[in-house]
Amino acid sequence: MTRERTLVQIALYAAIIAVLGLMPKFDLPLAGGVPITAQSMGIMLAGVMLGAWRGAAAVSLFLLVVALGAPLLAGGRGGLGVFFGPSAGFLLGYPVAAFVAGFIMQTLKNQPVLPVALVAAVVGGILVLYPLGIVGMSALGSLSPLDAAKASLIFIPGDTIKAVLVALVAQTVARGLPDALISRAS
């Protein structure tokens, strides 16, 4: 794969994550100021579709643009301040989550796409991301670690639906444009 094509793919998935920020966020008082957004689906998708390193690079590019002040997070948030609020653990965990999802896709590339993509999205986007998010909610929010862990439970149903959608997208792409599923390439 050419370097130019890789850069375009990284930029494309960073843009997809940004576009998902246009969907309204839902603020929940129980979650210590961490909103429900569609952007976590973009994180899962970047890892599942691009693989470990490219997925993490796409998410990191997105976060860099946010840090530079672009209001790309749901609700029009951006700038360095977002990395010092209760969402910081989730934001900083995004590249790790994408990396893990992509690593699982690459490791199990000879297995059926749908179940592997679902497992990858759940493991990266929930099991890996939530502990980092909980630490951020506790350290930078007004919640104890136990309360932050309890509050994060509210995100599980939505993130599970997002993981299923990501798996369905990966399956559809694998059938129609298998070369676009970079995480499965040899």
Rank of each mutant, 00 (worst) to 15 (best):
T6M: 10
S152N: 15
L132H: 14
A149H: 04
L143C: 12
G47M: 00
N110D: 07
M44R: 07
F26T: 14
A185V: 08
R184T: 03
I43C: 14
G136L: 13
D179K: 13
L73H: 01
I17A: 09
P157C: 12
G33T: 11
I17M: 09
P115M: 10
L177W: 12
L72V: 02
G158Q: 13
L168F: 11
L127G: 03
I16L: 14
P86D: 12
A120C: 07
T37R: 04
A67T: 04
F84P: 00
G33Q: 11
I134M: 14
I126H: 10
P71Y: 11
V164L: 15
M23T: 12
P29D: 09
A56E: 01
T107G: 04
Y130P: 00
I154E: 12
A57V: 07
A185M: 09
F103C: 07
G93F: 11
A180T: 05
V19W: 05
F83N: 09
V34D: 02
V119L: 15
V100C: 06
V19G: 03
A58D: 01
M49T: 10
G133S: 14
A121K: 04
S60H: 06
D147Q: 12
F84V: 06
R77L: 08
V169G: 00
P178F: 12
S60A: 13
A38Q: 10
Q39C: 07
P112F: 10
V123H: 08
A170N: 08
V19I: 15
V19Q: 00
V173G: 00
A70N: 01
L114Y: 08
S186Q: 13
L80Y: 04
L127K: 04
G47W: 02
S138E: 01
I154Y: 08
P157Y: 12
L68H: 04
A97Y: 07
P86A: 15
V8P: 00
A52C: 07
A167G: 01
A120P: 02
V100I: 14
A74W: 04
L168K: 06
I161G: 03
F83Y: 08
A170W: 08
L143P: 06
S87A: 15
V116A: 03
T172W: 14
P29N: 12
T172E: 03
P157N: 13
R3N: 11
I161K: 00
L114N: 01
F99T: 01
M137S: 09
F90V: 09
R3C: 06
K25F: 07
A167S: 02
Y94N: 02
S186G: 14
V59S: 01
G176V: 13
V82G: 08
I104C: 09
A38T: 05
V100F: 06
F83M: 07
L22R: 05
Q39G: 06
R175D: 07
K109V: 00
I161V: 15
S186I: 11
L80T: 09
R77I: 01
V128T: 14
A38H: 07
Q111C: 02
P115D: 11
V96S: 02
L92C: 05
M137K: 13
A46D: 05
D147F: 10
L177F: 08
L153T: 10
I154T: 14
R54F: 02
A151T: 13
A67E: 01
A174W: 00
I17F: 06
A149Y: 13
F99P: 00
L61I: 03
